[in-house]
Design a protein around this nucleic acid. Structure first.
Lengths: 129, 129
DNA sequence: CTGAATCCGGCTGGATACTG
DNA sequence: CAGTATCCAGCCGGATTCAG
């Protein structure tokens, strides 16, 4: 990503750029963010606990998202071979780093959410008629 | 967002939480990211210029994405009433702020994408058999 | 040049039922 | 408890065509 006018410059090769976009595409997903939050806040959690804390997620998407996050190395999955099954999910170091990186966006939203809502209202008023 | 064990704590209202998810959804979008990059790098651009710099985007998605970004107040749309039409798109202050905030995620991706790929390969090897 | 409108195939994601 | 499997409605996004 390149910036202008005195902001930082980060030059990347096209292939790295593509990989970065791919990683961001996987990682900057709605459920991924919420699961990262849940694990950051509560530490290690079981499958059902994650679903309950996140809220509103279907079992299918919970499974799918957890699998993807495990695949990308954001979390670890520990299976305890007992009956009934007991599976624990824990954030990895790069998962925590990612969560920290997202903080900037959270701060942005804290700072500007009112302006975004105002912009949307103004846009609606402009385009509405 | 809350963290644990001595890390920073950021408490957010439900509405901010909702906006963050919404904004992340927008920014995580492939075309939004590329348009932010294009405007950050080149400054004010015309409709066709954005499409050419971004590359590979359909006219429909270009229009749609620009509209969404304008609605959210990330960019401004300036129409010059001439023939042929001349429309300029420019990043707003909060658009630049968001881009800067999102830089953290880019840096994360650039820092760790190799580890992500390694994790994916390891996962594939584990699950493959 | 800058869009709007339409058609349409493919993928996403929710609901549901079933398994070890 | 922790998934897997299946069905299916809805949205996304590309291609194309038309308009101011």
């Amino acid at each position: 990503m390149q910036t202008q006018g005195g902001l930082m410059h980060i030059e990347v090769s096209p292939e790295v750029d593509a990989l970065v976009r791919d990683v961001i595409g996987q990682v900057a997903d709605k459920w991924t963010m919420l699961i990262l939050e849940a694990l950051e806040e509560h530490g290690t959690l079981r499958f059902t606990q994650v679903g309950r804390i996140v809220g509103g997620i279907s079992q299918k998407m919970l499974t799918k998202t957890l699998r993807q996050m495990e695949c990308d190395g954001l979390i670890t999955r520990k299976v305890h071979p007992v009956i009934p099954p007991h599976v624990e999910y824990t954030m990895t170091e790069i998962g925590r780093e990612l969560t920290a990186a997202f903080c900037g966006v959270w701060v942005w939203a804290e700072t500007y959410h009112a302006q975004v809502e105002a912009a949307r209202a103004a846009f609606k008023a402009r385009e509405g008629r």
